[in-house]
Measured scan of single mutants.
Amino acid sequence: NITNLCPFDEVFNATRFASVYAWNRKRISNCVADYSVLYNLAPFFTFKCYGVSPTKLNDLCFTNVYADSFVIRGDEVRQIAPGQTGNIADYNYKLPDDFTGCVIAWNSNKLDSKVSGNYNYLYRLFRKSNLKPFERDISTEIYQAGNKPCNGVAGFNCYFPLRSYSFRPTYGVGHQPYRVVVLSFELLHAPATVCGPKKST
């Protein structure tokens, strides 16, 4: 009989979030998941669920729940959905087409922007091929755009693959930082360890 609440607040209220290319994953298990708490945590810009209804979450049980978190800019949030393409979905964080879970995003301009520009958040701009779903690539190998090998040196047709967002508070919403948490629900042929409040007794 599990009584402890799932530590969603640790994920959502973390002081620092990860850069999207090096997104963070927390496995959540053996706890009571009260998803209604999430609705009250922040004024969400996005709370979209796929393959599951957000209002039914509190009635369900899962084997595992994974919470992935990272920062992107406002106009990239739409890429965090099944079947999307674009720089983020292709080279940084890719959801599977049959994704079961929820994408939660909110504006973090007050936390993640600086007047002089916050350069701490990076994204991958160049990659030889698209990522597979939930693949994480943290390599910093020089990207070869031409025929000549780069031998690890940046220059003509040889690019450092990561680029930094420079978040400034005066930017338009599309270029402001957004914190994203992706909850993916895993149903294996194994005992369910993460249940809503109704199912945990």
Score class of each variant (00 low, 15 high):
Y91P: 00
V103Y: 02
D9W: 11
P133E: 06
I80C: 02
G196Q: 11
V180T: 07
P133Y: 06
P169W: 04
Y178K: 03
T100F: 15
A89R: 03
V71N: 01
V103F: 02
A22I: 06
I2K: 14
L111M: 13
V20N: 02
V180D: 00
L5H: 12
E10V: 09
Y171R: 00
P169M: 04
A67Q: 06
N87C: 13
E10R: 09
L187Y: 12
E135R: 05
V71M: 04
D34Q: 09
V153F: 11
V65Y: 08
L57S: 09
Q176F: 01
F17P: 05
F47T: 12
S69I: 04
I142E: 02
V182A: 05
G172N: 00
P7M: 10
R136N: 04
R168F: 02
W23N: 02
T140K: 12
I104N: 01
S200R: 14
A105R: 05
N130F: 09
Y91M: 09
T3I: 09
T201W: 14
E10P: 06
Q79F: 05
C49E: 01
Y66P: 01
A154M: 10
C6A: 06
N24W: 05
F160R: 14
Y159S: 00
S139V: 05
C31L: 06
H175W: 15
G155T: 07
G101E: 00
P197E: 13
P82K: 04
F44D: 15
F99N: 01
F8P: 05
T193N: 14
L60G: 09
R25H: 07
L125V: 08
A14E: 09
E76M: 03
V153I: 13
S69E: 03
F8K: 04
K132H: 12
F8D: 04
N147S: 08
F62G: 07
I88N: 01
A81T: 05
L188S: 15
F70W: 01
A22M: 11
T170H: 06
F12V: 09
C6G: 06
V37W: 15
R127S: 06
Y35V: 11
E141S: 11
R27Y: 12
Y39F: 15
A192P: 15
V153D: 10
S69D: 04
T100Y: 14
E10A: 11
Y35H: 08
R78Y: 07
F134I: 04
Y165L: 01
Y159L: 00
N24A: 11
N107D: 01
D9E: 13
T193V: 11
N30K: 08
F156I: 08
I88Q: 02
F134A: 09
F126I: 04
C150A: 00
F70G: 01
L131R: 02
